[in-house]
């Protein structure tokens, strides 16, 4: 038996969240006294795959079929299921991304496995296989016992640190499943990538700068963008801002938007309704800037500034630009 980790690429490099999944996979393999193999699909640099050895991955199965450069659930499931079978994998590890959660759910049916998404801890393996997952929109944790022979885990982003296991490079082996046209029936017609503020994906970002209605209009968004740029952060917004079309919906974080869990979340002009908190409460450090000292968000913050965004944010930008990298 072995542990199999699915790693995702972005612009040819491996996503940070997948390095976290690789770390998780290696640590589970250590617990179980076995090795961790990775499977990668589509456009990823082979050097990046070999570097997974740093996270403790011994071997990478790589399917470079260019039809897989875009995510196609059925085709991805087939490749990963074949890899799982070949490696006799009993634990499959994904990042809790749209892709990881989707493929995980389909594999749970196909491999008759138990699935836990949003996982925040390594398993407890005495008397079961118990992992902790984030539930109730970050307001609670649940311990779940995965009872099937095959366990599938989607690891919550930024829940554990990427660890360097110090091994040599992983061997990269070419791999392919016998894909047919039917596997591409729901393939995307078209892919539209957004301008991701200096290449930082919101869901992968370690720092997020987010703006609310306190910024008064889309013409003032340069404050959010300039601070984000100075900090190497991604930008986000509150629900009212997306509803008013000041910013696109894919930037909306909150209960019915995207949930983020960065190391640092900076909220500018956001009052902190409970629905907004539900999307950001797993952030490690929260900074709130609001001119209303009664804004509920201050109760959930680690650092706060009561003041007008138009006075405060330029000072932050200046200070951030002055930091030595």
């Amino acid at each position: 038996m072995s542990v199999l980790v699915f790693v995702e690429g972005f612009n040819g490099e491996i996503k940070k969240s997948s390095l976290e999944a690789a770390t998780y996979g290696y640590q589970v393999a250590q617990q179980l006294g076995t090795s961790a193999t990775a499977v990668a699909i589509g456009e990823v640099h082979e050097e990046a795959l070999a570097k997974l050895g740093e996270q403790g991955i011994s071997k990478v199965l790589y399917d470079a079929d260019s039809r897989l450069n875009n995510f196609v659930a059925d085709a991805y499931v087939k490749v990963i299921a074949k890899a799982a079978q070949q490696e006799n994998a009993k634990v499959l590890v994904f990042s809790n991304s749209n892709i990881g959660a989707a493929v995980g759910a389909k594999l749970a049916v196909r491999l008759n496995g138990s699935l836990a998404t949003n996982v925040t801890t390594l398993p407890k393996t005495d008397g079961g296989f118990i992992v902790t997952r984030s539930v109730f929109s970050g307001k609670a944790f649940a311990e779940v016992n995965l009872t099937s022979d095959v366990k599938i885990i989607a690891v919550k982003k930024n829940a554990l640190e990427i660890a360097n296991a110090g091994s040599g490079p992983a061997t990269v082996e070419k791999f392919s499943a016998d894909l047919t046209d039917a596997d591409f029936a729901a393939a995307p017609k078209e892919t539209i990538m957004q301008d991701t503020s200096g290449g930082v994906l919101l869901t992968e970002a370690e720092i997020v700068v987010s703006g609310g209605r306190g910024l008064k209009g889309p013409e003032n968004w340069h404050l959010v963008e300039d601070l984000a740029k100075a900090l190497g952060a991604a930008t986000a917004c509150s629900k009212p801002v997306a509803d008013l079309d000041w910013r696109p919906h894919h930037e909306h974080v909150g209960q019915t938007g995207i949930a983020v869990s960065p190391n640092l979340y900076i909220a500018i002009g956001i009052s902190g309704a409970i629905q907004h908190l539900a999307g950001v409460n797993s952030s490690k450090v929260i900074v709130v800037i609001n001119k209303d000292p009664e804004a509920p968000f201050f109760k959930a913050a680690d650092y706060g500034i009561v003041g007008d965004a138009f006075d405060v944010v330029p000072k932050l930008i200046e200070a951030a630009r002055g930091l030595d990298k």
Binding site: S114, L115, F141, V144, Y303, G304
Partner: peptide, 26 residues
């Protein structure tokens, strides 16, 4: 069922907010 919920817990409370004067926002 393939995933049995064993128990629940709540996150630790935050330590409270540290306020910084707007004049010295940097």
């Amino acid at each position: 069922t393939k995933a049995d919920y064993v128990s629940f817990s709540k996150p630790e409370k935050k330590g409270g907010v540290k306020m910084i004067d707007a004049e010295n926002a940097g």
